[in-house]
């Protein structure tokens, strides 16, 4: 790393012009990225009719906080906590089941091992829309339609293939000797898994948790199909709900948007290196 830095400093003098152009383009993309966010945040602090009168990029005058008060007191936290609940339950179940599956695939030799692995990984390319009608049918048959329970199954299942794929690659990197010495000391397969392999896979599991957590948090199509009653809906559906109640009040919808992105941004700033590592695991073996 150090050497890279020094070389880079030498180079910088050589190609100042190149860097100037690069930074200009970088700033251009920065503006492009930020403009919609600025639009969203600024206008969420306006009264309904101030948006057109004041111009969308002017500072709100006065700063109007009642949109947020209105949103928070009218069910926002309900949507929020239902999303937290579904994501937490699905994520824990998914990680347990995925590591169960990855363990034999990575560390045991048995017949059809490669075939089973390929079969599971192939499920990654099945689009959810192909499964939507039968799963909808299944959900109504099981009597869990319009409840949060209906989402757990699909969320776990659709995160599995990719997670098994990455965890298998991860578990293969754990040295065999650790397990063998534990076995000599009288440790059975299941204890081996829980006491050695699982704790050693912690960093793999946490990256998967972040990656899939974001996906589940934002999931729309299953939730929109399986949930009907507003008091059962998750956060991605809240927007349509609020829009239905405040059809023309754009600032209030923008404040819902701001509130729903905020937790993701905070988590990202804290865990950004983990996220990059998680995607790296997928990138290398893909």
């Amino acid at each position: 790393m150090q050497a890279k830095q020094i070389d880079y400093a030498k180079e910088k003098r050589k190609s100042t012009l190149g860097w100037a152009v690069a930074i200009l383009l970088a700033c251009f993309w920065l503006v492009l990225t930020l403009t919609p966010f600025v639009f969203m945040v600024l206008n969420s602090f306006r009264k309904q009719f101030d948006m057109l009168q004041q111009g969308v990029f002017h500072m709100p005058d006065p700063w109007y906080f009642n949109n947020y008060v209105e949103v928070v007191t009218h069910g926002f936290f309900g949507y929020f906590f239902r999303s937290v609940l579904v994501v937490a339950v699905s994520l824990v179940l998914m990680l347990i089941i995925a590591s169960f599956a990855a363990y034999p695939l990575a560390r045991m030799k048995f017949r059809f091992c490669g075939l089973i692995y390929a079969g599971i990984v192939a499920m990654m390319s099945v689009p959810m829309h192909v499964t939507l009608i039968p799963i909808f049918k299944l959900t109504t048959d099981m009597g869990i339609y319009d409840s949060l329970k209906s989402l757990v199954g699909p969320y776990v299942a659709f995160a599995l293939p990719m997670s098994v794929f990455i965890l298998t690659a991860f578990m293969k990197t754990i040295p065999k000797e650790i397990e063998e010495s534990a076995e000599i000391d009288g440790c059975g397969r299941f204890r081996n898994f829980f006491m050695i392999i699982l704790p050693l896979s912690k960093s793999g599991l946490s990256t998967l948790a972040i990656y899939n957590g974001v996906a589940m948090w934002n999931e729309f199509a299953f939730a929109n199909t399986f949930l009907q009653t507003p008091s059962h809906k998750t956060l991605p559906l809240a927007l349509n709900q609020f829009k239905g109640e405040h059809a023309l009040d754009i600032p209030i919808i923008l404040s819902v948007l701001t509130l729903s992105v905020l937790p993701m941004i905070i988590l990202f700033v804290i865990f950004q290196d983990k996220l990059v590592k998680g995607m790296m695991a997928g990138a290398v073996k893909g």
Binding site: P104, V126, T131, L132, P134, L138, G153, L160
Partner: peptide, 24 residues
């Protein structure tokens, strides 16, 4: 042992991938 570990995954894939695709 491998079958026991893989069982939940098999089950979920059967219910949420294989059956739905065929049923579609």
């Amino acid at each position: 042992a491998a079958t026991v570990f893989l069982l939940p995954t098999f089950l979920l894939i059967a219910v949420y991938f294989i059956y739905p695709v065929i049923d579609t």
